[in-house]
Computed example of a mutant assay.
Amino acid sequence: MINIPNVAVAMSVYKSDKLSYLIEAINSILEQEYEVFHIYIEVDGAISSDVKSYLNSLNPETATITYHRENKGLATRLNQAIDKIIQSGQFSYIARMDSDDISDSSRFREQVDFLSKNQDVYVLGTDIIEIDNDNNPIYYKHMESDSDKIKYNIIKKCPVNHPSVMFRVDLFDNFKLRYQDNLMNTQDYYLWVDVINKGLKISNLNIPLLKFRIDENFHNRRGFKKAINEFNSRIYAMNKLSIFSFSNILHTILLLSLRLSPEPIKKFAYRYMR
């Protein structure tokens, strides 16, 4: 029986991750006001020697590092971290964290407090502040907190900011949900659809508890494959949740058109049309 609601942190690191950003990300976890946590880092293929040296310097009582030779993608590595967390039997919650973002020091405390008081919520995200390469704020992203509205608007807006999420371990243990590891991107959206399809609630704290980095490669990564996966994810959601409508279909087609448009148009839309 767990008396203290321990938090496990699930992260993945791969070859493109920048050491300085990774250090900031992990430091933001190590400096949490809520101190009962353990970090699980899955290393997805070959990484630079300086990143490996840094990871090896982390206290094994605080972080478990697992190295993998092959690059299998985020979904596979997060599923592996989730399996380790469940097998340990020590945790009530799993917090997501990316290797270039920054968590507010109160993040875990705020999320654990909310989940402790709202037993029907299984996935909890937060508002975020988007930042540039130099940590300058670019945009405040406000998220919907009402679970019913999140379900209703899932075609037109992703329910949560993936790196800000805290899950109940029961979501993966009792309900047997996982990321679809055949996907190299958009895996989080499919998971949100599966969560809602199980009749479970998703919510957000309207506090900016994560700084989300928008680097120079952000829009380049949203290429053809990402566009197709996003299109397919909306069709998946409409099928799973029985929410086919003219409005949802039109939005899905327009989203695909936007994702396939030239980069300047994507940047403009991302900045001014949200």
Results as ranks from 00 to 15, higher is better:
Gly223Trp: 08
Val13Pro: 12
Leu58His: 09
Arg213His: 11
Glu61Met: 13
Leu78Pro: 00
Asp98Gln: 09
Pro208His: 07
Ile150Lys: 03
Asn56Leu: 15
Leu241Ser: 08
Ile47Ser: 09
Glu130Ala: 12
Glu144Ile: 15
Phe172Asn: 06
Asp120Arg: 09
Asp181Trp: 03
Ile202Met: 04
Arg234Ala: 01
Leu177Val: 03
Leu254Tyr: 08
Ala75Ser: 14
Ser105Asn: 14
Asn248Cys: 05
Ser57Met: 12
Gln119Lys: 15
Asn27Ser: 14
Asp100Val: 07
Met1Asn: 10
Asn136Gly: 01
Phe114Thr: 06
Asp113Thr: 14
Leu258Trp: 09
Leu22Arg: 13
Ser49Asn: 13
Leu30Lys: 15
Leu241Asn: 08
Val165Thr: 06
Ala95His: 09
Pro60Asn: 03
Gly89Leu: 02
Phe212Val: 00
Leu124Ala: 01
Asn27Pro: 03
Asp132Val: 09
Pro5Ser: 09
Leu115Asp: 04
Lys211Phe: 13
Asn182Gln: 04
Asn197Met: 00
Phe37Cys: 06
Ile41Pro: 09
Ile85Leu: 06
Leu200Asp: 04
Ala237His: 06
His219Glu: 12
Ser145Ala: 13
Leu58Ile: 15
Phe212Leu: 12
Val9Lys: 01
Phe114Glu: 13
Leu209Asn: 10
Lys225Met: 10
Asp181Pro: 00
Leu74Tyr: 11
Ser245Leu: 12
Lys266Val: 01
Lys211Trp: 14
Ile94Arg: 02
Asn185Met: 13
Glu35Tyr: 05
Ile138Gln: 11
Asp17Glu: 12
Ser20Trp: 02
Phe167Ala: 04
Ala10Trp: 08
Tyr139His: 06
Arg96Asn: 15
Phe218Lys: 08
Ala81Phe: 04
Ile138Cys: 03
Lys141His: 14
Ile154Gln: 09
Ser106Asp: 12
Tyr270Cys: 07
Lys72Asp: 09
Gln90Thr: 03
Asp132Lys: 11
Ser147Cys: 13
Arg109Ala: 14
Leu241Trp: 10
